[in-house]
Design a protein around this nucleic acid. Structure first.
Lengths: 170, 170
DNA sequence: CTACGACGTTCCTATGTAGACATGTCGAAG
DNA sequence: CTTCGACATGTCTACATAGGAACGTCGTAG
């Protein structure tokens, strides 16, 4: 149900088409809430039906520019401040950890080392994104940097944990 | 597709009924891979069809005791060592952060403070679980403690991040 | 001996997610 | 004037997830 609010949130920065939104999406929100193009278009349709967004203009190639409505903005604010975030942590990586006794210690260690490497790689990638968005002064960039910092910190924690855990084996 | 392996993993510790598994599940794996009872039962059926588990015994009340087969064990090991974990990070909490510009700074700060409190509370809860499982020497407990340590570390990071982020507003 | 809590499975519906596919238009480069 | 990449929307299927309802049985405390 959050894709709905992701779309509203992007539109709160200004009118855009589904195509535009998808591009914005890929470089920002997709990291915290993945979604496909088909989901996004479908959601925009429902949002329009519900009156939370309106079709502000139609352009070439059937382009529909959506704009958030007052109701949409109200819904977005309400969601941010009044609705408890559902926190369902889902991690295949951790799930495997529970079963590491089923492979031999050497393989278990390898698994954890691999996770540490993956975390390191993802940190690198986030660092480069950081350099890239450092300059943006729009709302999404400013607050996106907070989210990025979260990723950086959690990634570091994860890397350290994986190294520690590897040492725990045997 | 991971619930399948969660079930296999639990059965790798010994035969059990769906009901048994569900209880084990709730106190361990549910924290890293939530699932409902209906999902679990359905999965056990499919697993049996696929020959990865077998019905080892039938008990009172239609109880079916499932046991992992050689094929199942092989599949579990293969999954742990050879299959790249899919890492789809999904966080409503972070999604909201992107849109914090839409509420006033005071509310944004409150939101972040709230997240810090939630992290603190979840840390407390994990600490009490920690005391509880400290003694277990079975595989699930031993490796579960690694997963728990992950939760503890990430929770701490999250709390600190939220406090930092709150300070960044305005 | 009966009521009740724990045991135990199965079915159902709604919604979300993943990913591919179909369809077509516009603008610019050659 | 053709072709091609970017633009742009929409449909379809399969599977996963969420949550609840229905149904019945066993063991035991009173």
């Amino acid at each position: 149900m959050s894709l709905r609010h992701a779309a509203l949130g992007l539109l709160s920065e200004g009118p855009a088409s589904g195509y535009d939104l998808m591009k914005m999406f890929e470089v920002s929100l997709a990291n915290v809430w993945p979604a496909t193009q088909s989901q996004l278009y479908a959601e925009l349709g429902k949002l329009a039906d519900a009156g939370l967004v309106s079709v502000a203009a139609e352009g070439p190639r059937g382009r529909k520019e959506y704009a958030i409505t007052e109701e949409g903005l109200a819904e977005l604010r309400h969601w941010i401040t009044d609705v408890e975030p559902v926190r369902t942590m889902r991690s295949e990586m951790l799930l495997r950890v529970f079963f590491l006794a089923q492979v031999d210690p050497q393989q278990a260690k390898e698994y954890l080392r691999r996770q540490s490497e993956i975390a390191a790689k993802s940190l690198e990638q986030m660092e480069s994104i950081k350099d890239f968005v450092e300059s943006g002064q729009d709302n999404l960039s400013v607050f996106g940097r907070l989210a990025l910092e979260y990723g950086l910190r959690v990634g570091t924690t994860q890397r350290q944990w994986a190294e520690w855990a590897e040492g725990q084996i045997r």
